[in-house]
């Protein structure tokens, strides 16, 4: 049992590289630990974690639990969940945070049932109730149309997966010190029930919507598939990814990889430019939490204007190319 209570961040790594969201979580963890007095720690399952610890210290981790095992080199749900659950059982942290990545969202729900913990999904806001000693976990539900604050009063740890790109990264310094605690888990008893055969990074020139800082999206108002060209042109000028509404995907104008919305991707870029998108609730669900929303639509009553920071009323076929032109001119 640790003498002080601990707040853990799951230090997700892929191919020996720590995921960006981990630093975001550590940054937010610094604030939560200040309020709660807990110790900020990271948990790092990998083949060999030692070399990855320094950067975690730099973002505020006082302690890094490294769990080294060749079987933990790449993510495998059975091994990872066993390793993390066992460490939780033993060290009894108060809080465990995971990035809401494909890995985090597989691992955390498995660990949650293993250790009897509540798990709040995909949080966008965290706070600490000092009086009750509870983590206040706020998350969008119903595709972002409502927000819910979830608490977990009776079970420990309190666990949450947290969305990428919502918390700012704050580095403490470039040379923080911290303590590496090596922890051993015997994985030989865990049956090998699944094996990764292949891992492919698609050499897609288009920018990943999930990671994009800027997104330009087209909706029905674009009119026809060929007209997506002006969307692409503006996007490339802005260094943005291209998104689309469900209507355009269903109409076959653009591939579903681009679909933003409840049944597509949920995005939160710095700037989201919605062109000719009416703003069905379905679509809003996927982009509402963008920092700044620019809506271009000829219908002043379009619901998209309800969530927009800047609404441009007019014909997108004139406005979008103009936008591109002026950005290009500004760069030149």
């Amino acid at each position: 049992m640790s003498t002080t209570k601990e707040l853990w961040v799951f230090a997700e790594q892929r191919e020996g590289k720590i995921a960006g969201v981990v630093y975001e979580l550590l940054s937010e963890g610094q604030i939560l630990c200040e309020k709660s007095g807990y110790t900020l720690c990271a948990v790092l399952p990998s083949a060999d974690g030692a070399s990855l610890c320094q950067e975690l210290y730099n973002f505020g981790a006082k302690k890094v639990y490294t769990i080294d095992d060749p079987k933990l080199k790449d993510y495998q749900n059975d091994y990872y969940s066993r390793a993390v659950a066992q460490l939780i059982h033993e060290k009894k942290p108060e809080i465990v945070l995971y990035g809401a990545t494909t890995i985090g969202r597989s691992l955390a729900p498995t660990v949650a049932v293993m250790v009897n913990a509540g798990l709040t999904a995909d949080c966008t806001q965290l706070d600490f109730d000092v009086e009750a000693g509870n983590l206040l976990q706020t998350r969008p539900a119903f595709g972002g149309n409502i927000m819910a604050t979830i608490i977990c009063p009776d079970n420990r740890p309190q666990m949450a997966t947290v969305r990428s790109n919502v918390f700012k990264k704050t580095k403490v310094s470039d040379s923080e010190s911290g303590e590496q605690v090596s922890y051993n888990v015997d994985l030989s008893a865990v049956p090998e029930r699944m094996r990764r055969l292949e891992s492919v990074h698609e050499a897609d020139n288009t920018i990943d919507l999930n990671a994009a800082q800027y997104i330009v999206s087209g909706g029905r108002g674009v009119g026809k598939p060929e007209n997506f060209k002006i969307i692409y042109d503006l996007a490339s000028e802005l260094g943005a990814a291209v998104g689309a509404s469900r209507a355009t995907v269903d109409a076959g104008w653009i591939s579903h990889h681009h679909q933003v919305g409840q049944t597509g991707k949920t995005v939160c870029p710095v700037v989201y430019v919605a062109c000719g998108i009416s703003g069905a609730i379905q679509h809003l669900a996927g982009m509402q939490s963008s920092d700044v929303i620019v809506a271009i639509n000829k219908d002043p009553d379009a619901p998209i204007f309800d969530v927009a920071d800047f609404g441009l009323i007019g014909d997108l076929h004139a406005i979008v190319p103009e936008f591109q032109k002026q950005i290009a001119a500004a760069k030149a």
Binding site: I146, A148, P153, G311, I313
Partner: peptide, 29 residues
């Protein structure tokens, strides 16, 4: 159920929304 929904609320509305209209070039500038 270890988790409890302690409160549900509407997402914050955009407070200082600005609507632009007019010529495309002016709006974009």
């Amino acid at each position: 159920s270890p988790t409890k929904v302690s409160k549900v609320f509407a997402p914050p509305v955009k407070l200082n929304k600005e609507i632009l209209s007019g010529e495309p070039a002016e709006m974009i500038t």
